[in-house]
Amino acid sequence: MRQLSRRAALAFGAGGAALTIVGWDRPAFAAAKEAADEIAKFTGGKTAAKAKVSIELPEIAENGNTVPLAVSIDAPMTAENYVSEVLVVAEGNPNPGVATFHFSPMSGKAEASTRIRLATTQNIVVVAKTSKGEFFTGQKLVKVTIGGCGG
């Protein structure tokens, strides 16, 4: 069954010169449960309200090796009440963890952007924690075209 899960993606590095071949050696869907476990660990089992979280991702990512991601939480950022942590997990990657962002009142806004790797078409789940212990969540589906960058 191993060969079924092998994915190869061609990607160009930021300089355009580096050519990399990525082979994932575990079934992509195995991470969905691990992702749920990671979220449960983050929230301490509390339910996160489906609100306040905006996720910007392309609908279709031709190159799964560098997919732009922007996360923003529509919540106050004052010393008394602010978004303290934001967890990003990928349900279909070999490992669900993507990043955890830590904010402070000095962040001004609970917003961050980065570029991520996606092994296959999947949901990206974002969970935000406030300094008052509230949790908010959102998710977005990204279609990943494997080897879609002219490889």
Partner: peptide, 10 residues
Amino acid sequence: FSANLDPAIA
């Protein structure tokens, strides 16, 4: 601001 990064970061 700080971030813990996993291998899924490009």
